[in-house]
Amino acid sequence: MTPLLTINSIHSFYGKIEALKGIDLHVQEGEIVALLGSNGAGKSTTLKTISGIVRPTSGDVLLHGKSLVGWAPHQIVEAGIIHVPEGRRIFAGLTVRENLELGGFTLRKEKAAIGEGIEQAFALFPRLKERSEQMGGTLSGGEQQMLAICRGLMARPKLLMLDEPSMGLAPIIVVEIMNIIREINRQGTTILLIEQNAKAALKLAHRGYVMETGHIVMENKADVLRTDDSIVKAYLGA
């Protein structure tokens, strides 16, 4: 079966710094795939390259076997890939509702779809409904992360890419976010998840990749990665 997402020997640069030195990975439809690795390994750059924020110098990104390299970011969103970036980056000066509406920008021709999406988001996180007319910036860190995820779901992505959704959150909130990610996946969205918190991510994921300084150094089933002590110690620092 053609994977939903395939990445073939991607090289990406920031100026002269080579952040990705030939990355290969794939994500099958319906999977949760974890992308792990220490700080600076190139995880975020991988997502940025997929979403078109960073242009690779060589290699290919394929969605259902169709190349996306060179597409503008908004076209990649229209094709069905959403990237919820590191640090959440919700619009602090817009209301929760406006944040969600903008998440549905690609559905703007179907007014009803935006309303439906907002209702689904509120069903997923009732706390967002209570705060719907509040400015995004007044939300707590956990609520902002929930908003960022919901804003991403508004576009009805085939593939949802989450960059460190647990960053800076209290353990109890992390559990809540992880449960929601599992639920989103159950409802049919494929997920590519970046995490520093390897343990939490591997509990959730079907497969995992481990990155180190611009390379992928390991790929395996999540339970294999999780139970192999030497791997956990060497790469996942947990």
């Binding site: 979403s51 078109g52 924020i53 503008a72 970011p73 908004h74 969103v77 229209e78 959403i82 990237h83 919820v84 970036p85 980056r89 919700i90 619009f91 903008l102 998440g103 920008f105 690609t106 804003r151 576009a155």
Partner: peptide
């Protein structure tokens, strides 16, 4: 950047 990621042209 966040706007790009929302699919805003």
């Amino acid at each position: 950047t966040a706007c790009h990621l929302m699919g805003i042209h």
